[in-house]
Simulated scan of single mutants.
Amino acid sequence: MGLWKVLQREARSGKFEVFKPQVPKRVKDKNARHPVTKKRLKKLVYMSVLCETKIPLSKLSQDILGDMWYWYVDPKTSEAVVIGKVRSESGCLVPRELIRVFEEVCFINFSVKDLEALAERYCMHTDEWMKFLASKYDKVIKFCLDYKKKMEAKDAEL
């Protein structure tokens, strides 16, 4: 059942299960008084909004993309996949998946060295949709790189 149907059903029944509207509580204000009658005014108090204050990010080992070859966006999962050249037991270079980034926010965990490696390498894509997804990852990589460089410069000044 679609979201619109759920909202219509809840509005008709008056029993909100999925989306509960916030009903304010009327409380007498300690400081505010009516200018003529001098009675205390009432104010509406809403519950505080529940939201994340810190983004939960997984810890990554730093400077792991030194042997990076290229990166691409996986068409099945829309994850950024970094491919690197790794020496096999026979001594020749073999392409191997180094890391998968499932969301753009995870790039904030990367070091400046890794972000520079990602920014200067070309993202492999096959069609327009993958090009669009790759551009999203590119923008976040460049933003994180600029932010980290500014923070390093700020720390160097202090």
Rank of each mutant, 00 (worst) to 15 (best):
residue 42 K to V: 10
residue 50 L to G: 11
residue 13 S to E: 12
residue 59 K to S: 05
residue 99 I to V: 12
residue 87 R to M: 06
residue 110 F to K: 15
residue 70 Y to F: 11
residue 27 V to R: 00
residue 46 Y to Q: 03
residue 133 L to T: 00
residue 124 M to Y: 14
residue 121 R to G: 00
residue 74 D to K: 12
residue 61 S to F: 15
residue 33 R to Y: 02
residue 53 T to I: 12
residue 31 N to I: 12
residue 23 V to F: 13
residue 19 F to K: 06
residue 72 Y to V: 02
residue 120 E to L: 14
residue 51 C to N: 06
residue 130 M to V: 02
residue 21 P to Y: 07
residue 71 W to T: 12
residue 55 I to L: 06
residue 22 Q to P: 15
residue 131 K to F: 02
residue 49 V to R: 13
residue 76 K to C: 06
residue 41 L to R: 11
residue 52 E to C: 05
residue 59 K to L: 13
residue 25 K to G: 00
residue 82 V to I: 10
residue 11 A to E: 05
residue 33 R to P: 14
residue 50 L to Y: 07
residue 121 R to F: 03
residue 35 P to R: 03
residue 54 K to D: 10
residue 7 L to M: 13
residue 31 N to H: 09
residue 116 E to M: 08
residue 45 V to N: 05
residue 11 A to R: 03
residue 7 L to D: 14
residue 13 S to T: 10
residue 19 F to G: 04
residue 106 C to Q: 11
residue 34 H to N: 05
residue 15 K to L: 09
residue 34 H to G: 08
residue 122 Y to S: 12
residue 58 S to Q: 07
residue 25 K to Y: 11
residue 25 K to R: 15
residue 90 S to F: 08
residue 45 V to Q: 03
residue 130 M to R: 08
residue 132 F to M: 12
residue 48 S to P: 15
residue 109 N to C: 12
residue 59 K to A: 11
residue 19 F to P: 01
residue 124 M to L: 07
residue 97 E to Q: 06
residue 109 N to W: 02
residue 58 S to G: 07
residue 109 N to R: 08
residue 36 V to R: 11
residue 113 K to L: 06
residue 84 G to A: 02
residue 89 E to V: 13
residue 90 S to G: 08
residue 33 R to D: 10
residue 22 Q to G: 15
residue 119 A to M: 03
residue 120 E to H: 01
residue 90 S to W: 04
residue 116 E to C: 12
residue 111 S to N: 07
residue 56 P to Y: 04
residue 67 D to K: 15
residue 69 W to G: 03
residue 51 C to H: 10
residue 51 C to K: 09
residue 62 Q to D: 10
residue 92 C to T: 14
residue 124 M to C: 03
residue 120 E to G: 06
residue 24 P to G: 05
residue 25 K to W: 11
residue 128 E to V: 05
residue 34 H to W: 10
residue 107 F to E: 03
residue 13 S to R: 02
residue 13 S to I: 14
residue 30 K to R: 07
residue 112 V to L: 04
residue 111 S to P: 08
residue 114 D to M: 06
residue 55 I to F: 11
residue 118 L to T: 01
residue 91 G to Q: 04
residue 81 V to Y: 00
residue 88 S to Q: 07
residue 41 L to P: 14
residue 42 K to W: 05
residue 73 V to E: 01
residue 69 W to E: 00
residue 93 L to S: 06
residue 66 G to C: 08
residue 85 K to Q: 06
residue 56 P to S: 08
residue 94 V to K: 02
residue 55 I to T: 13
residue 50 L to Q: 14
residue 20 K to Y: 04
residue 16 F to H: 13
residue 39 K to Y: 09
residue 34 H to C: 14
residue 26 R to W: 05
residue 30 K to D: 15
residue 8 Q to V: 09
residue 67 D to S: 09
residue 72 Y to A: 00
